[in-house]
Design a binder for these strands. Structure first.
Lengths: 243, 243
DNA sequence: CGGCAGCTTGACTACGGTCAATGACCGTGG
DNA sequence: CCACGGTCATTGACCGTAGTCAAGCTGCCG
């Protein structure tokens, strides 16, 4: 094959993910049908559409977003390596949000048609997929709590910390710095803030040395301090399966 | 048995839910191990705790909520008949939110230990459970869009409309009125608004005749008009499976 | 009757939105 | 080579939605 063999997948062995059994590894190698590259700015899946494929992000970052009728956009959350994409299209008949690539992305692809086969023959993998959905649900719940209860500074601290930790978990940290390719507008749409206020909030965190986001890089000198600003106590990332 | 036989379940035959096959019905009758009653104000499952049971709500309403460290509370969403409770505890090791009964609730209970058995022997039911999780994910996404993008009037219109439609779908509407047992504080915590502002917003909708919420009852004289105020185009409820 | 929980209303405040202008950077084409 | 236009980041001035504080009201239960 011309694409990455799951055997050599650098992602699945990260401590963020539940390790594969031999049986699972064998199945995933047959389940994976290829890879898809999406250029920066491209669309992975589109709200309202069906897709023939399910994906696991191998490289790159993106956003999940929905559009309100009047054009307002909400970024539901960010998409990082290891995240699963396309479940809704398969189960509910259509995607309920759009996934857009911010950096160039490479995704492992699976055939939608064979998902049922997985449920029938690989209950352990089906269980893991449900687990993944439950974890996603948990994250969205956290997100709701942030939008509903935290002010702008707390929101921004919270978001930057979560992103930093997530990227660290997939090995994208160098020292105290991770790449952060999103525009301020993307983060504004994620946090429910205006672009202007987002900018001013980022500037404040930068001045205070809590989180330095600039030039596509995010540096967090002191995790604990940022966590305190965000009102987070638990810094541990939730371990989850990966498909 | 001393509890409701799934054969006679009034919920599962509602058009809101995907019908059972005979095989599924047979399995569910064996999978259901009993019923649990929770008084108004009681706790169904607690954030941070494990549970021995999974539940499907048979009667009554409640809230899913998380507590921030400093005591602020966010209501993630509301719980209505037909909703599934406890997935996270089973898959992730602990509940990530609390489910509290607002009215007295009756829940069908299932043994957590037997969930794996379901994945192994009943792939169709496992598939449905994942489907349910995906639908839940979709709702949380909608919720995030509302908190992030809509102002107080839109949020309230949106929430009351969603609740009204959901209760109608399970047969709790009489004319244009449904029971609405939540306190204004509950809705305030759900919408990320202060109690005072929630009250004023409810009052405005009432004055304008868009939605009359008073005395534990919600009347929506004109769905279309309320939908317009909420910025919703699609009034159709998402059909989903039920366990 | 008193106390409590929940709802209502008014006065004041402030966080975050809107508007507008400017700056930094970059790719393209004259 | 540099001018131009586009995208994104930044900053200041002003404004409005929603938060806070405080008081009063209603209904219910002991």
């Amino acid at each position: 094959m011309s694409f990455l063999d799951c055997v050599n997948c650098p992602l699945r062995i990260k401590p963020l993910f539940v390790p594969f059994t031999d049986e699972e590894l064998r199945f995933m190698r047959s389940f994976k049908i290829g890879e898809v590259d999406v250029p920066a700015g491209g669309t992975v899946v589109n709200e309202g559409e069906q897709t023939d494929h399910l994906f696991t992000v191998l490289q790159g970052m993106g956003t999940r977003s929905v559009l309100l009728e009047d054009g307002r956009r909400q970024v539901i959350n960010f998409v990082f390596p290891g995240d699963f994409v396309g479940l809704q299209a398969t189960l509910m008949g259509e995607m309920k949000h759009t996934v857009r690539a911010i950096t160039p992305m490479r995704l492992c692809s699976f055939a939608r048609k064979r998902l049922w086969e997985m449920f029938r023959d690989q209950p352990a993998r089906a269980y893991d997929l449900t687990w993944i959905a439950a974890v996603e649900e948990h994250f969205l719940g956290e997100n709701i709590a942030t939008l509903g209860q935290r002010d702008a500074t707390e929101r921004m601290s919270w978001a930057l910390l979560r992103i930093w930790r997530r990227l660290q978990a997939v090995g994208l940290v160098r020292g105290t710095t991770v790449p952060l390719p999103f525009r301020q507008q993307d983060v504004a749409d994620a946090l429910g803030l205006s672009l202007v206020h987002t900018n001013k909030t980022v500037a404040r965190l930068r001045r205070d040395g809590l989180a330095i986001w600039s030039g596509g890089q995010l540096t967090v000198p002191d995790l604990e301090r940022l966590a305190r600003a965000a009102g987070i106590e638990n810094l541990r990332e939730v371990v989850r399966p990966i498909l």
